[in-house]
Design a binder for these strands. Structure first.
Lengths: 171, 171
DNA sequence: AACTTTACCTTGGTCGGCCAATGAATGAGT
DNA sequence: ACTCATTCATTGGCCGACCAAGGTAAAGTT
């Protein structure tokens, strides 16, 4: 269509081709990267790496849980969670013990020291959020959340990675 | 049997604390992750990993460039680009040669074989973009792009990672 | 009870991405 | 011309994240 000859194309655009072919995809990548960096800076004060704070929040919120719980809640790969927990345990943020009711399961909980970070982490996230949304009025923020949710839905569908989200705990 | 506390079942949907404290931050993380996965699937057909396609696009677009050029254009860490290029070289997508005009620099260019992927990659990105935006009407798409750009600006500011963007290619 | 399937977690590998530190060549200052 | 600073690229280490494969234990089936 737009591009017929792959071999010869000396178009000297300032805009990357990617931005033309997929502006939103491109923007998502960039925003995500910058956001992660920003998160890293904010989290440096609490001795956490980006990503870990979500796990900790879940732990603070729910208390002792099985890893499966975390995996499902955060929709991450099991191996990812395992490794995160190993590091988190090593840094003293988390404690793991075998589940007495299920010998193949592991119970995870936040350590008391980590609980001291709870407030700081939430404050950090609040500040990160505010920074991210600086200059956007409430209507824009709402709209952004709505649109992102739609996009997430779309991507979720293809990925088929969040199938049981709707029914979390049905009897 | 030892299911969980009934109180937890009450707030089923398990809105993570993170979602309350930073809905957009949370959404950005999730969307980014899903988007990356989707990109991975689309790119599997062209033997590229997510992230590499942007680099290749730049190469296809600009021809032989120095790594610095890539680093600035993609706003990535130098070491990241180095490693990406090493793998890309090993998979035959890229070729590197010393810059005759500057003995500490390296010229990078896409191989001919990789050029054959050019069209496929752009098609993949197009399809990814379309998938991402499925169900959004043109107005919503525009708005999303606009809002993401604003957010990127905000994050950029703090990060101070894209200061010289205005003067991309001079001379 | 014995067998089979499923669930839970771990390990090993790969990739993108970062930071910190290093080596090599250019460029600027004196 | 000789320092000194800057730039270019690489290496090593680390983390998040994925997949694939494996081992153990609990359910489900016969």
């Amino acid at each position: 269509m737009t591009r017929a000859t792959p071999a010869e194309d000396a178009c000297t655009n300032a805009l990357p081709t990617a931005a033309l072919g997929g502006p939103v995809s491109h923007a998502v990548s960039r925003v995500a990267r910058l956001h992660r960096i920003a998160a890293g800076k904010v989290l440096k004060g609490v001795d956490l790496y980006p990503g870990q704070e979500l796990l900790m929040m879940h732990l603070w919120d729910r208390g002792a849980v099985r890893q499966t719980e975390l995996i499902k809640a955060m929709e991450l790969d099991p191996s990812t969670v395992t490794k995160m927990l190993q590091r988190l345990e090593q840094t003293g943020h988390v404690r793991r013990r075998p589940d007495p009711a299920d010998r193949r399961a592991v119970l995870v909980e936040a350590t008391d020291e980590s609980c001291a970070l709870h407030t700081a982490v939430e404050a950090a996230w609040g500040s990160l959020e505010e920074h991210t949304l600086a200059g956007l009025d409430p209507a824009e923020r709402t709209e952004l959340v709505r649109l992102l949710a739609k996009v997430e839905e779309n991507l979720c569908r293809e990925t088929e990675d969040c199938p049981d989200r709707r029914r979390a705990a049905s009897g």
